[in-house]
Amino acid sequence: MKSIKIKADNLNVYYGEKQALFDVSMYMEEKQVTALIGPSGCGKSTFIRCLNRMNDVIDICKVQGKIEIDGNNIYAPSMQVEQLRERVGMVFQKPNPFPKSIFENVAYGPRIHGIAENKSDLEEIVVNSLKKAALFDEVKDRLNDAGTGLSGGQQQRLCIARAISVNPDIILMDEPCSALDPIATARIEELMGELKTEYTIIIVTHSMQQAARVSSRTGFFHLGKLVEVDKTETIFSNPSDQRTQDYITGRFG
């Protein structure tokens, strides 16, 4: 078994009176892709947003329980949220590059986190991040063009480059391919295979086939509960819970 990177323990999340997550406990292995599936509103996005404390910005959101990354509780009072987010990058459903140049999109993070010592350092980080995101060859001659001028798939890879530019351990992806065509989707999936040699990846996806293709473990959420989490192969061939089977075979959801 791989070593455990993230561990959630009896996680309960409330938005005001409404409880969004119920006693969720699961672990995520280091340098592996973990997929989270489930119908809309099942809590999987809420869960993923707890992993870098994105829910902190929502006033009525209350988180109980524990999430450990490398054994440290990220909800401990001593945890510095900026440092946490440096380690846990995120990529969203719709590509959301800054209205800046391709270069500046990637340089932004290292600059505000003070990662680059000087200009050539920064350039190196930008080039490396773009290379890791498999975008460099397509944009190397136009790094000063606007990031928003790229195609959807390229924009999403730019967002991945931006996420990895601050050298995180973990990348959270919330339906990263739902706005992309099959070719751009295939490129991102291929990229995930490369990225997982360095990063722990958590992906929320509505595509069963995508979860089956990219992940080693899959968790199924329903009505705020983690119904089942197991090896991806088991989840899609012979899940233990009837609700999982009904969902993945298209019987409810």
């Binding site: 069963m208 086939q209 089956a212 899609f236 061939s237 012979n238 899940p239 999982t244 089977q245 993945i248 075979t249 298209g250």
Partner: peptide, 10 residues
């Protein structure tokens, strides 16, 4: 057409 899974696949 359907990419069957789990019991459907079996």
């Amino acid at each position: 057409m359907r990419q069957p899974l789990a019991n459907d696949l079996r």
